[in-house]
Amino acid sequence: MPASDLLEVACDESGSDGENLTGGNTDVFAHASVRLTVEQAAAAVQEIRNRIRSPAEEYKANHLLREKHRAVLEWLLAPAGPIHGHAHVHLTEKRFFVVDRAVDLLLGPGTAQAEAVTLFRVGRGVFGDERWREFLAAANQLLRVRNDGEPRAPVQVFFREVDALRRAHAGTGISDVLDRLAAARPRADAYRAGLGDGPILVPVLNPLLPAIVATAAHWSADGRPVQLVHDRQNMLTPERIAWIAAMTRRAGVDLAGLRLVEARRDPRVQVADFLAGIARKIASDELNGRGDPPLTALLRPYVGTTSVWGDERSWVTLAPADEDRSPVP
């Protein structure tokens, strides 16, 4: 296939905490991609260096997020900047991702999305902060592949939480979801038992792999085959890359390939790294009620509408102007 027929896109991520999605260092996972030539990306990186003038050998998003470099950050994201119209960010709200995956596992794929959204949006207010955190932590442990304790302990802890919440909140608007979760214990037992059968190809709690599939789908919209160039990741084994290819084919996306490179050797991946870190921080600030409206407005055109996001207030703020509903996970 002639190179001119391929749409080559460079990618990187920010906010990976492994399987610890409810107690890690970050509450948002961002996967960014840019469609630039190597020359265009190199020029953007050099311009950032010229403007920031830090002696650091390798620049990261934190350089641009410092208040003293605010003007550089705004230049990078602005409509007249080097990446506007040539970049995309897929966001994952980690706590919602845990709830969504747990409900999907226990109640079945597809039909459980509404229940996950209801549970996430109502749960904290109904349960209270402390019990909500305990529920999220129990759901996280239930889904984790790695478990250093007794194999059945995560199931016992999770359903003990569910039973306690059912008793405390019977007859409320959330009791039906809790009742359905309580009845799904056999599914949880089967899931935990299956984790002992060997290496897990696609961990339920890993947001990177579905984000890559979503990224390929976004860029395939113009009809050309998409070639992804991605920063090296231990998660991206040949088997998982094959899974990504299979998922994109199932979605009708023409993914020509996924090639791994060292970020410092490809300026396009460096720009994607900048954008991922910047987007994660801006989105996290919105999620936690400390948003910066001018920066959020600059980020909005880059945010993908299929991002996995449950917080309605912050999503309305983050999503592109023509998208005012919660994204579909």
Score class of each variant (00 low, 15 high):
residue 166 R to Y: 02
residue 168 A to I: 06
residue 197 D to T: 09
residue 143 L to A: 02
residue 222 D to A: 15
residue 173 G to R: 08
residue 148 D to N: 05
residue 190 A to G: 10
residue 231 D to M: 07
residue 223 G to T: 07
residue 148 D to F: 03
residue 223 G to D: 05
residue 163 D to Y: 11
residue 186 P to L: 11
residue 199 P to C: 03
residue 192 R to Q: 08
residue 223 G to Q: 07
residue 210 P to A: 14
residue 178 L to Y: 00
residue 205 L to D: 06
residue 226 V to P: 04
residue 158 F to L: 08
residue 226 V to M: 12
residue 175 S to W: 03
residue 153 A to P: 02
residue 186 P to C: 11
residue 228 L to H: 06
residue 241 I to S: 13
residue 188 A to R: 03
residue 167 R to M: 10
residue 173 G to L: 05
residue 143 L to I: 03
residue 203 P to N: 05
residue 174 I to G: 01
residue 224 R to L: 07
residue 161 E to K: 11
residue 236 L to A: 04
residue 162 V to T: 06
residue 241 I to Y: 10
residue 147 N to K: 05
residue 155 V to R: 12
residue 192 R to Y: 09
residue 196 G to S: 09
residue 201 L to Q: 01
residue 188 A to Y: 07
residue 230 H to P: 05
residue 198 G to Q: 01
residue 231 D to R: 07
residue 236 L to I: 01
residue 176 D to T: 12
residue 164 A to T: 05
residue 178 L to C: 10
residue 203 P to H: 05
residue 241 I to M: 14
residue 192 R to H: 09
residue 241 I to H: 08
residue 151 P to M: 10
residue 157 V to T: 11
residue 144 R to K: 15
residue 202 V to H: 11
residue 237 T to M: 13
residue 225 P to T: 11
residue 157 V to M: 06
residue 163 D to N: 13
residue 233 Q to W: 03
residue 199 P to N: 03
residue 173 G to M: 04
residue 167 R to S: 14
residue 161 E to L: 07
residue 192 R to P: 04
residue 160 R to E: 14
residue 197 D to M: 04
residue 148 D to I: 03
residue 191 Y to L: 09
residue 221 A to L: 11
residue 185 R to S: 02
residue 195 L to Q: 11
residue 224 R to F: 09
residue 229 V to K: 09
residue 226 V to F: 12
residue 150 E to K: 15
residue 161 E to D: 06
residue 222 D to M: 10
residue 232 R to M: 08
residue 155 V to F: 14
residue 195 L to Y: 01
residue 162 V to K: 00
residue 231 D to Y: 07
residue 177 V to A: 03
residue 182 A to T: 10
residue 187 R to Q: 15
residue 154 P to M: 06
residue 162 V to Y: 00
residue 224 R to W: 07
residue 170 A to L: 07
residue 177 V to C: 04
residue 179 D to E: 12
residue 152 R to T: 10
residue 180 R to A: 13
residue 187 R to I: 06
residue 228 L to G: 03
residue 210 P to S: 12
residue 177 V to M: 02
residue 202 V to S: 14
residue 199 P to R: 02
residue 230 H to M: 15
residue 182 A to V: 12
residue 220 S to A: 15
residue 232 R to P: 02
residue 143 L to M: 05
residue 236 L to M: 08
residue 209 L to M: 13
residue 211 A to M: 04
residue 229 V to S: 10
residue 221 A to Y: 08
residue 216 A to T: 14
residue 204 V to Q: 00
residue 177 V to S: 00
residue 212 I to L: 15
residue 221 A to P: 06
residue 202 V to E: 14
residue 197 D to I: 03
residue 235 M to W: 04
residue 177 V to R: 00
residue 205 L to N: 06
residue 191 Y to T: 01
residue 163 D to V: 12
residue 145 V to F: 10
residue 162 V to R: 00
residue 236 L to T: 00
residue 158 F to S: 03
residue 216 A to M: 13
residue 221 A to D: 08
residue 153 A to S: 09
residue 142 L to W: 05
residue 206 N to G: 12
residue 178 L to D: 00
residue 212 I to F: 07
residue 167 R to L: 13
residue 221 A to R: 15
residue 190 A to I: 04
residue 236 L to Y: 02
residue 227 Q to W: 06
residue 196 G to M: 04
residue 240 R to S: 04
residue 154 P to G: 05
residue 150 E to W: 15
residue 215 T to V: 10
residue 171 G to L: 08
residue 204 V to E: 01
